[in-house]
């Protein structure tokens, strides 16, 4: 599992705006977008997630990560550890297996994750 919570805590941002997944070499680069300095600036914290690797959920620091992570799980197959909402279907019908609508930009890493 890739630990991110300690790093995120150190950043001391005003707010988590969003999390973006950009597919790379079969895995993903995750960008955490934070706002700083009374919401004036935006900075990114990024991590490389190899295929199949789980990422620690940021929900303990930012509650709104619940939905953002659930979206990435369902649409891109990025797995998060410690997000109690990860089982809650947001975009897919109950009983279907995800991810169905991912990913790779123009090339190979399509299909479902293993």
């Amino acid at each position: 599992m890739i630990n991110v919570v300690d790093e995120i805590k150190k950043i001391k941002a005003d707010r988590l705006i969003s999390i973006t997944s950009v597919p790379k070499d079969g895995g993903d680069t995750l960008y955490y977008h934070f706002s700083f300095n009374d919401q004036v600036e935006i900075k990114e914290f990024s991590i490389e997630v190899p295929k199949g690797e789980k990422v620690e959920s940021a929900i303990t620091v930012y509650e709104n990560a619940a939905l953002l992570e659930a979206e990435l799980t369902e649409l891109f197959g990025v797995k998060f550890e410690g997000n109690p909402h990860s089982g809650q279907r947001l975009f897919q019908a109950e009983g279907s297996e995800g991810p169905k609508r991912c990913i790779n930009i123009g090339t190979n890493r399509v299909k479902k994750d293993a």
């Binding site: 649409l75 891109f76 609508r101 991912c102 990913i103 123009g106 399509v110």
Partner: peptide, 10 residues
Amino acid sequence: MERVAVIRNG
């Protein structure tokens, strides 16, 4: 809100 990513495969 519901934009979503799908595959075009080039």
